[in-house]
Design a protein around this nucleic acid. Structure first.
Lengths: 150, 150
DNA sequence: TAATATTGCATAGCATGCTATGCAAGTGTA
DNA sequence: TACACTTGCATAGCATGCTATGCAATATTA
């Protein structure tokens, strides 16, 4: 079957952008449901992932590891501080900079948060074979690296 | 190579959810850049797609074709009305309902908007072969349909 | 028909993300 | 040292999306 696309035709279901957007909201919805019992929200997740690896870092260092803009990070950190997930201290060697530390509350939910995310990922990809799952991740990596530079 | 994932390990780059979220923001960024000269923004795009097919519909009918919540649609329609993209009239046979109509301004940018979206999609997938592009869309469809029901 | 339930839409309040901008603290240079 | 430049972060203002809630109009049921 041959499908002709004219400038008078646009099919959402054939649009990568439309599908990506929809899929992202489904992932966020599922992850939010699973992590809300832990007292965190989805936007905090990438930040927590990095701080669980290493805290006591500057906002700049954190920013280098996370794919959001600086203002987005600063705002999310504000909410995390409000929610007692992080504390900010002055950097003794640079008064402009800060050091960001996890609270015990945030440290304590690490294993459960990992599990929540892995469960969401596993369920989302449950309809794909192991080989298809690898392909899917690979394709996404390639699309992302192509788009980052543009 | 065998990779062991423990509960003390979580790699963003292996997380479908993380990649999907990042990719969605890259798509939105690129589309926004291309359509802003047309006087529209990305959230309006799915709504316009449907209204270009058929306008004079109720909000409920529109909602059935778009994958967002009712409140999101109502808010986006408010901004579109503010920006002179749509007009709302009363439904003569049901005073609760409304009919949503495109303005001439919105009708006139259809071809350019289609082209913008198709260019974004094409560029995003430029690093994939035709067969890989088909696979990618197919995998996304399957992931989405699996997640919608959960 | 009167009471109740449902429907169609609007609004409030919030999180996430962006761009643009401001500003104090550091760095470099004349 | 004085000046300009850069850096690290905060804030304003906006769009997008969500859940929860309100409310008038319609539909249903007793």
């Amino acid at each position: 079957m041959q499908v002709y696309l004219s400038d008078m035709d646009f099919t959402k279901e054939d649009s990568a952008g439309y599908l990506v957007n929809h899929m992202a909201r489904l992932f966020a919805r599922d992850l939010q449901q699973r992590i809300s019992p832990l007292g965190i929200v989805v936007g905090q997740f990438p930040i927590l992932l990095e701080l669980w690896q290493k805290d006591g870092v500057s906002q700049k260092e954190l920013l280098g590891k996370i794919d959001v803009e600086q203002a987005t990070l600063a705002n999310t950190l504000n909410r995390m501080e409000r929610d007692s997930l992080v504390k900010r201290t002055k950097n003794p060697t640079d008064a402009r900079a800060q050091l960001i530390w996890l609270t015990e509350k945030a440290s304590g939910i690490r294993a459960e948060a990992y599990e929540a995310a892995q469960t969401v990922n596993a369920q989302a990809l449950a309809g794909l074979s192991a080989e298809e799952q690898r392909q899917f991740l690979d394709l996404m990596h390639r699309v992302i690296s192509g788009m980052r530079q543009e």
